[in-house]
Design a protein around this nucleic acid. Structure first.
Length: 110
DNA sequence: AAGGTGACCGGCC
DNA sequence: TGGCCGGCCACCT
């Protein structure tokens, strides 16, 4: 189930798809871009449904510490890390290295 | 309708 | 960034 046309989810996916290659962002940043900075949890929840979307690079979305908190939700356990490293992002101990350097601030518009 | 949950964030020690 | 607490919003049963 889970209709992919849910405005809220759609918004999260829209921002997530805007993440450039080799860059990452945090849930709070996306939440802010959506205007719901206080419900950063909802962003993560939306990502939970991201499995229904194929163009949602959830592996580029981590928490504010740069930790791959959601890697457990991927197919494997190190898949998320593999993808990030594949983009040139260094990941050690489930944590992104130079997080502030690869950090990208989303913007749904303007 | 109500309760529980969730890939979080911010503040404080 | 190491750990704990509360808050906040939307989804699910």
């Amino acid at each position: 189930m889970a209709a992919p046309n849910d405005n809220f989810f759609e918004r999260v996916y829209t921002v997530a798809r805007q993440i450039p290659y080799g860059k990452v962002t945090s849930y709070g940043a996306i939440a802010k871009a959506l205007g719901t900075a206080r419900s950063a949890r909802m962003v993560g929840w939306a990502m939970n449904a991201c499995h229904n979307m194929e163009d949602v690079p959830a592996h580029r979305v981590v928490n504010r510490k740069g930790l791959l908190t959601g890697k457990h939700h991927f197919d494997g356990t190190n898949l998320m890390q593999q993808l990030l490293e594949s983009e040139g992002i260094k990941v050690v101990n489930n944590q992104i290295v130079d997080f502030d350097k690869v950090y990208w601030e989303p913007g749904i518009s303007v």
